[in-house]
Design a protein around this nucleic acid. Structure first.
Length: 365
RNA sequence: UGGGCUGUAGCCAAGCGGUAAGGCACCAGACUUUGACUCUGGCAUUCCGAUGGUCCGAAUCCAUCCAGCCCAA
C-alpha cells in the first residue's frame, strides 16, 4: 500500500483531497506547515489567530479520518523565502505574488523533504490541477483543472519535474460544488469554510500596513502626476500602489484615473487613462519550464499575466541571456513587474516566469 | 467700494418655474489561495451661498446681503 503525505492547510480542499485518497486505498498522514507565528505577522503572541485555527481544523479532519497529523515548523524558511522577498519586491516598486514564492520554495519542497525522511512514497495537495506522465517526451505534464473556474495551475508553474513526479492532485477532476458536498457528506468540519482570505500572513488584507508596522518599511509620500508631469496630489508612499489600480487614490477627476507608472527615481505615481496601460510586449525572467524544456526558438503559446484572467495568445521569444520576451497578439492591460506570467499550450502548463516590465512599442526588438 | 462674472454633495458638473442628471472620490458587498481590475448596491428631505419676496408651485423669477474671481482704476 502506497504511503502518501497530504499537505493540509486546514481548508476544505485539502481536507477532501485526503478523504479521496483514503477512499482510494492509500495509507495516509496529514501534514500542516506552520509558516509564521503571531509575532511574525504583527499580532500579540498570546492571541489565538486564524493560523492556529487552521492547524486545529486540519487536526480535526485527520482525527475524523483516523490518520496521523503532523505539524512541521517552517517559520524560518517562510520568513526568508516568502515574507522577505515580498517586502523587497515592494521596495523595488514591484508587485510581488507571495503565493507563488511559497509554492516555489516552501510548500512543496518542505512537505516533500519531510515525506522522504519519513519514507512516504508521495505527497498530495488540494490544488485544482491535473498532472500526467508523457511517455513520448519523458516528462511530467502539469495541466489545468477539469473545472476551468477553479483552475489553480497558474500558481503552480514553479513546480519541478521532481516535484511533479512525487505529487498527487486528487481534486483535478472535480469542481468546487462536488468538493464541498463530499466534505459535507463525510462530516468534515471544514466543509463550509469560506474561500481565500487575502495574503495568508496579512490577515486583515492591509499589506501596506503590514510592511510598515511589522517590517518597519518606510515608504515616503510623494506626488501623483499626470503623464504630462502636472502634479495632481499627494500619494502615501509607493508601496500602496500597483499598475492598473484605480481605487484608493483619493484623486477626483472628470473621469476614472488609473496608476499607469511608478517612477521610483522621483517617487512619483503617474495617473492616466486606462488606454495608457495597454501593452503588447513584456520581459519575463526567473523562468521555470514545466512540461517542456527551454525552447530554442520562438514558439506560440497562450499567456496569463495575472491569476484571474483568460490566457491570451502570444509569441514567446527566448533571449540569449536566458530571459524571455512575450509578444501578445493583442495589447494587454497593466503588465505588472513582480507578477507571474504563465505559458500554456491549451490546458498544458509549458512554464512561466516573473514579469520584469512591459516593453514600449518603440523599444521592442 | 466703477464695470463684469460666479456661488448645486468632498471635487467637477447638469438643470433656465413643476417638485435635485451624470462623472470622480468615498463606503458596503460580490468575485478571489497575491496585488489589482471588474461587477452590484449606497451616497444632497439641516433641499441647490444667506435672507426676504412673487407664484398653486422656485435651485430656477425679483430684491438685498455675504463670499470668491476677473477687468478697470
Amino acid at each position: 500500500m502506497k504511503k502518501v503525505m497530504v499537505a493540509m492547510s486546514g481548508g476544505v480542499d485539502s481536507s477532501v483531497a485526503a478523504l479521496l485518497l483514503q477512499r482510494q486505498g492509500y495509507s495516509l498522514c496529514g501534514a500542516t506547515l506552520s509558516l509564521y507565528s503571531n509575532r511574525d505577522i504583527g499580532l500579540e503572541e498570546t492571541k489565538t489567530c486564524c493560523a492556529l485555527d487552521d492547524v486545529e481544523d486540519a487536526r480535526r479532519v485527520c482525527a475524523k479520518l483516523g490518520i496521523d497529523h503532523l505539524v512541521f515548523n517552517m517559520k524560518a524558511q517562510f520568513k526568508q523565502g516568502v515574507i522577505e522577498p515580498f517586502a523587497q519586491g515592494y521596495q523595488r516598486g514591484e508587485t510581488p505574488n507571495p503565493c507563488i514564492e511559497c509554492n516555489r520554495s516552501i510548500k512543496f519542497s518542505g512537505v516533500l523533504t519531510r515525506a522522504q525522511q519519513l519514507e512516504y512514497d508521495a505527497i498530495a495537495t488540494g490544488h485544482y490541477v491535473q498532472s500526467e506522465y508523457d511517455n513520448a517526451a519523458g516528462r511530467w505534464l502539469l495541466k489545468k483543472a477539469k473545472d476551468p473556474v477553479k483552475d489553480q495551475s497558474y500558481v503552480l508553474y514553479v513546480l519541478t519535474q521532481t516535484m511533479l513526479a512525487s505529487t498527487l492532485f486528487p481534486l483535478g477532476g472535480l469542481n468546487k460544488q462536488e468538493v464541498r458536498q463530499l466534505a459535507e457528506e463525510h462530516g468534515l468540519v471544514t466543509a463550509r469554510k469560506s474561500e481565500s482570505q487575502d495574503i495568508c500572513f496579512v490577515p486583515d488584507g492591509n499589506y501596506a500596513g503590514f510592511l510598515t508596522r511589522t517590517l518597519g518599511i518606510v515608504s515616503e509620500p510623494g506626488h501623483f502626476a499626470s503623464p504630462q508631469g502636472e502634479v495632481l496630489g499627494q500619494h502615501e508612499g509607493m508601496i500602496h500602489y500597483t499598475l492598473g489600480q484605480r481605487r484608493g487614490l483619493g484623486i477626483s477627476a472628470d473621469r476614472r484615473l488609473f496608476v499607469i507608472q511608478k517612477d521610483m527615481q522621483s517617487n512619483t505615481v503617474v495617473l492616466g487613462d486606462e488606454a495608457l496601460l495597454m501593452q503588447r510586449w513584456m520581459m519575463v525572467d526567473t523562468l521555470n519550464w514545466v512540461s517542456i524544456g527551454m525552447p530554442q526558438s520562438s514558439i506560440r503559446a497562450q499567456v496569463k499575466s495575472r491569476y484571474r484572467q483568460a490566457a491570451q495568445p502570444a509569441w514567446l521569444h527566448p533571449q540569449e541571456d536566458g530571459r524571455l520576451i512575450v509578444e501578445f497578439d493583442a495589447p494587454q492591460r497593466a503588465l505588472t513587474p513582480g507578477q507571474a506570467a504563465v505559458f500554456y499550450a491549451d490546458d498544458i502548463v509549458l512554464g512561466g516566469g516573473t514579469i520584469r516590465g512591459n516593453i514600449l512599442e518603440e523599444k521592442r526588438p
